[in-house]
């Protein structure tokens, strides 16, 4: 599949939308990706929307990247790819996702029939992978590892360095577990055949 751009009438920009339930690590995975892309010298934007609750409510984030000053809107009309950490609260993301856009689904929580008819869907049991990696809270990082392995957006070492730097001092103890989750997600998708190609 050739690289696509549907985020703007001009310039090649790529938009990823991430959605799920507050507490699944959605904001942190999106910020890690945006930060890693910025560290590569690329133009990145992170748009975040979440309800008043810290946990349990709808949460969503958007990461846009390009190699020139971005024209993307802070609320993107269209996304090129999506990470759905849960089937709940995914409606807005799916409504904006380009036809054929790479879609990662957290198959640990989404039912099997969810998006069964859609193309380019990659099922990643992110919650289970993270638990097996000894980092039950790091499902978001398992998904980010899978996404980056599929798209080549950022390498494992870049992600680990960025993730570690983003953790506040009182959460540094999670760095190793998060790194294992990133690796587990990447290993999962490189071991299964997929039609999804590089998108960035």
């Amino acid at each position: 599949m050739s690289p696509t751009s549907t985020t703007g009438p001009r310039g090649r920009e790529h938009a990823l939308m991430v959605s799920g339930i507050g507490g699944q690590g959605i904001q942190l995975l999106a910020k890690t990706l945006a930060q890693a892309l910025t560290a590569q010298g690329r133009y990145a934007m992170l748009g975040a929307e979440y309800g008043g609750e810290m946990r349990g409510g709808p949460t969503q984030a958007t990461v846009v990247v390009g190699d020139a000053p971005l024209r993307a809107l802070p609320i993107v009309p269209r996304a090129d790819a999506a990470i759905l950490m849960h089937d709940r609260f995914s409606e807005n993301t799916l409504a904006r996702l380009a036809a054929g856009g790479l879609t990662l689904v957290n198959s640990s929580v989404a039912p099997e029939e969810f998006l069964a008819d859609r193309e380019h869907v990659v099922r990643v049991p992110a919650t289970v992978l993270a638990r097996e990696a000894g980092a039950a809270q790091a499902g978001g990082f398992a998904m980010l590892g899978a996404y980056c392995a599929l798209t080549g957006a950022a390498g494992h070492d870049e992600l680990v360095a960025t993730m570690t730097a983003l953790l506040p001092p009182y959460r540094r103890q999670h760095a190793e577990g998060n790194a294992r989750a990133l690796e587990a997600g990447a290993a999962h998708v490189t071991s299964v055949p997929t039609a999804a190609g590089a998108l960035t």
Partner: peptide
């Protein structure tokens, strides 16, 4: 709100 909270490079 968008100018206050969105992150950009």
């Amino acid at each position: 709100d968008l100018l206050a909270k969105t992150l950009v490079g």
